[in-house]
Design a binder for these strands. Structure first.
Lengths: 229, 229
DNA sequence: CCACTGTTTCGATGGGGCATCGAAACAGGC
DNA sequence: GCCTGTTTCGATGCCCCATCGAAACAGTGG
C-alpha cells in the first residue's frame, strides 16, 4: 500500500519454516495485516505475539526478525493510519474554500476514515503515550494536524464567520471527537460511518458558525466538493 | 464514600503482615486508592498487582483475598466513577429547565468530573468492553445515562428549540465527546478543567440550538443554576 | 492456661506473554 | 563441495496473573 515500488529486496532463502507453507508476499506486510486484523478483534492487550506468528505461519520468536518489539508493529500500523487525515487536510487546504466548509469536510472524512479502521485507534494512542520514542513520528504528524486545523479555525474567527473560540482548544476537541466516536462506532453500530461522519461534522460546524443559516450552504458546498471524488 | 455507615465488620486479626506497618483503614479502600493512583500514573497495563500490593504493604498474592481478579479492582473503580454523572443527571432533571440548559449543565459538569478522575476512563472502558460480565452494572448504568440524555434531546427537538437530530446518536456523541476530551486533557494540559468543560458544553449546545441567539441566555441560566452549589 | 476456630497473610507454584541468543537449515557464489 | 549471508527455530530468562495450601495471629470455651 505505502510502497507500490516492486524493488523487492533479494529475498534470498533462509531456513525453511516449520509450517511448510508457501511464503506469499513480503512477511513484513503479512505480519502487519495479520496484526491489524487480530488487534481489531481482540485488542492490543488480547493479541499475543504468538497468535500473530501463528497466523502468518511463523513461530513466535521469528517475528522479532522483522520487528524488534511489539510496539514497533503498532507504530507501523498507526503510521499508515495517520497518512489519511494528513493527505485529507492537504487536499482540502488546496481546494481553499471557506473555513466552515473545510472543517465540515475534514471532520466528516476523518470520522469516516477512523471508523473504517480495523482496530481501535484509542487503544494504540494509549500505548503510544507511554512510548514517545517509538511513536515519535506519529506524534509529530499529529501535532501538525492539530496546528493546521487550528489555523483554519483561526481564519474563520478572524474573518467573522466562526464564533470567537480558542483555536487550539477547538482543534484538539474536533480531533478528540472523531476519535471518541471511533471508540463507540467502530464495531457493529446501528449507524453507518457516513451517518456518523455527517452527524459529527454537522454538530461541530453548527457549533462554530456565527450564523447557523450558513449551515445548509456549508453542507451543500462540502457535498459538492467531496462528490468530485 | 459509598457507604458512610461505620458498621465496620469485626475485622478480627489474622496473620501479621511481613511489612509490619499499622493497618490504618479498610484494606479494600486502601487497595482501591492505591490502584487508582498508580493506574493514573502508569496505566492499567503498566500497573502490576505486585506494585499495588507493595503500596499498601501487602504481598502480591494477598490482594486476591480482597479481589478475585485484577478486573474486579477496575470494576470497583469505574463503579464509583459512574455514580457522579448519574446523580448529576438526576439533579439536573429534577431542576427541570429547558433542554438546552439541561444539556449545557450536564456536558459541562460531566467533562469536568471526567477530567478530574485520577485515571484514564477510556483505558478502563477498553477492558470493560472485553469483559461484559464483570462490568455488567457499569454498562447498565451507562445505558441508562445514554437513554436519559436522549430523552432530553428528544424533548428539545419536539418543542422546537433544538435542531432535528437523531436523539440516540446525539446522546452517544455527547458522552463520547466528554470521554474523548478526558483522554487529552487529563494530564497537565494548558487548559483548566473548567475551561474545557465550558468549551465542550458551548460547542455542543451551540451545535444543537436552532437559534444560536439562545446560547447566551442558556449559558447564563446554566451558570445561575450551577452557582447555587 | 490450652486447644480450637475463624481471619488474614504468606510462599510456592503453574501458566503464559515478551524478548534475547545461539544455532540450525537453507540458496547461491566461488 | 565449501563458504557466506539469510531466514527460521528452540531454549531460555524475566515478568505478570492467579491459585493453593499452609502459616501466624486473636478470641473463645473449657
Amino acid at each position: 500500500m505505502t510502497a507500490p515500488s516492486d524493488d523487492a529486496p533479494p529475498r534470498r532463502a533462509g531456513r525453511p519454516r516449520a509450517d511448510a507453507r508457501s511464503v506469499s508476499g513480503d512477511p513484513t506486510d503479512e505480519i502487519l495485516a495479520a496484526a491489524s486484523r487480530l488487534i481489531g478483534e481482540l485488542g492490543v492487550g488480547g493479541t499475543p505475539m504468538s497468535r500473530i506468528a501463528q497466523e502468518v505461519g511463523l513461530k513466535q520468536s521469528s517475528l522479532y526478525y522483522y520487528f524488534r518489539r511489539k510496539e514497533e508493529i503498532l507504530a507501523a500500523l498507526v503510521a499508515r493510519a495517520n497518512v489519511v487525515p494528513l493527505e485529507l487536510l492537504a487536499a482540502i487546504s488546496a481546494d481553499g474554500d471557506a473555513p466552515a466548509v473545510q472543517l465540515y469536510r475534514f471532520v466528516r472524512a476523518d470520522a469516516v476514515a477512523l471508523c473504517a479502521l480495523p482496530f481501535d485507534i484509542n487503544d494504540i494512542h494509549r500505548i503510544a503515550m507511554r512510548d514517545p520514542v517509538e511513536f515519535a513520528s506519529y506524534w509529530k504528524e499529529r501535532a501538525s494536524l492539530e496546528r493546521q486545523l487550528a489555523t483554519i479555525v483561526r481564519r474563520g474567527t478572524a474573518e467573522g464567520s466562526l464564533r470567537k473560540v480558542d483555536a487550539r482548544l477547538t482543534a484538539l476537541t474536533l480531533l478528540a471527537n472523531d476519535e471518541g466516536a471511533q471508540n463507540w462506532f467502530r464495531l457493529g453500530s446501528k449507524w453507518s460511518t457516513a451517518a456518523i461522519g455527517g452527524h459529527l461534522a454537522e454538530l461541530a460546524v453548527a457549533g462554530l458558525l456565527v450564523d447557523p443559516a450558513d449551515l445548509a450552504t456549508t453542507r451543500r458546498r462540502a457535498d459538492e466538493l467531496d462528490a468530485r471524488t
